[in-house]
Amino acid sequence: MEPFLNIQHVQKTFSLSGSNLEVLRDIDLDIPEGSFYSIVGASGCGKSTLLRIMAGLESATEGSVRLRGREVKEPTLEIGMIFQESRLFPWLSVRENIRFGIFKTSPEDRQQIDEHIKLVGLTGFETALPGQLSGGMQQRVSIARALVNRPDVLLLDEPFGSLDAFTRINMQQEILKIWEQEKTTIVLVTHDIDEAVFLADHIVLMSRRPGTIKKIVKSDMAHPRKRSSYEYTRLRNEIYQEFFAEFKTDIEYSI
């Protein structure tokens, strides 16, 4: 069978004032349709760059990203993306912001927009301007804007990073609900190990400089997941140890 979302030997080098900086090295990933992948790594490990390459916003120096066999060279409506900042247009209402997500607008949009406003739980806020909403609500609007085209893949780049702890946990549950309801394939980049363990069925651990895939941890814990469960804690500890081990060798190396 043809792979769904396939990353092959992706390598990325930035040239900064004459010198080359290798950010990603030999990334291979095979993401099946309908799965929830989370990419975890320290800041500067290139995980956001990888996600931007997957979105078609940046090109790989070597290697390729393919969706259903077709190479992703530039953004496509089949792949939606959400950033840490909601990136809503402050001059447009909630409804208009979501409408902007629709590729070819038509009179039938209304229902589609209403559905998505309901999906992210913002019914009643249609005419509000982004500036009148809380950070969490703004991020909900940006999720609705990305989903309104019904993309096959949703890329999330630390989407809850700037939210407070309560809102973050709330939004994590929200994104699970959307994932289960819409069957969208999700790739979430985060530095929050707890978030990755709570959400993903595959957790990709990245090392840094250059970013490589260190390990892929599979999690078949059923949803809803309990943060206090044995399985949850075990998985979390396993991942912490991966990163901790790296730290230790780093220190030994420098001495």
Binding site: L57, I79, M81, R87
Partner: peptide, 21 residues
């Protein structure tokens, strides 16, 4: 440029980008 990136992701044409963003 963050707004322009959103427009790129949503495949908006130049005229729409000018008028709406």
């Amino acid at each position: 440029s963050k707004y322009l990136e959103v427009a790129r992701l949503l495949k908006k044409d130049r005229f729409t980008i000018l008028r709406r963003i």
